[in-house]
Amino acid sequence: MATYIARRLIQGVIVILAVSMICFVIFRYMGDPVVTMAGRYATFQERAEVRRAFGLDQPMYIQYVRFLWNAAQGNFGKSYVSRVPALGLILERFPATFELAMVAVGLAFSAGVVLGVLVALKPYALRNRLIMAGSLGGISIPTFLIGILLIMVFAVYLGVLPPFGRGETVQVGFWRTGLLTVDGIKHLILPAFTLAMFQLAVLLRLTRAGMREVLAEEYIKTAWAKGLPPRVVIFKHALRNVLIPVVTITGLQFGELIAYSIVTETIFQWPGMGNLILTSFFETDQPVVVTYIMLVAFIIITMNIIVDILYALINPKIRYE
């Protein structure tokens, strides 16, 4: 087991290094940092000075090592646009994204599993057919369209929920939260629902499929035959085994969650990291882009390693050669 964990960690480090190399190339070659820093109208001499001051005249590998060294210390340079450290700019936006994502995942997971179990128990009941039809809608409506339709209905026509922004927030230590004010929660409802939808439908269908397969197994028949109450058979014997892949998928869908949070944040003008990265793309603000990619890579890879290790712990069938 220890070897398995060590191996996964080493793989993670290799991936991070690969990502950092790509980021270095983006930073160095996509848009000229010298022009950006010295200004378009700088003289040749001024440019040379900037080049020297930032070490851009050094050999490539030295520049890369320096980039890596700085990155390890959280120094990714300053945003070309707002002239403040890129990492600070992104971390400032982190709480907004984190709160939105966590509420959405919680919503998707609980609703998805509960509905999935319900549907699997009586697949052909009318109500459950309707739920399945709804879930087909859930995977067939792209996130951005859900968001816009929700704004149309609840903000424009009914006028009951705010269409954009994060509302009133409260500073708790270093964390700025929107979960402690009524206004903040009102602002969270539509974006959280939008972001939850893609996962909810997937988790529902996964739970349903898993439950249907497990419920046909011999050991479940034995459990029924023993006269165990349905609650125990369904939740303790069946659902437990189904939950392993469901939890795994939830963890592995982190990349998608981040992708769709970009979409959601853009539609609702949510002041999070996703919103920032899209504007940074349009402004070719490479330090912010690079910082964002490194941070997201780090988060996703860490999540994956955690999921893999947990999975290996739960499932004894996995061999860690």
Partner: peptide, 15 residues
């Protein structure tokens, strides 16, 4: 796969 198709395609096109 971990980064997801959506996110990777978004990055490629954004860059």
């Amino acid at each position: 796969f971990a980064f997801s198709t959506t996110f990777m395609a978004f990055l490629f096109l954004g860059l």
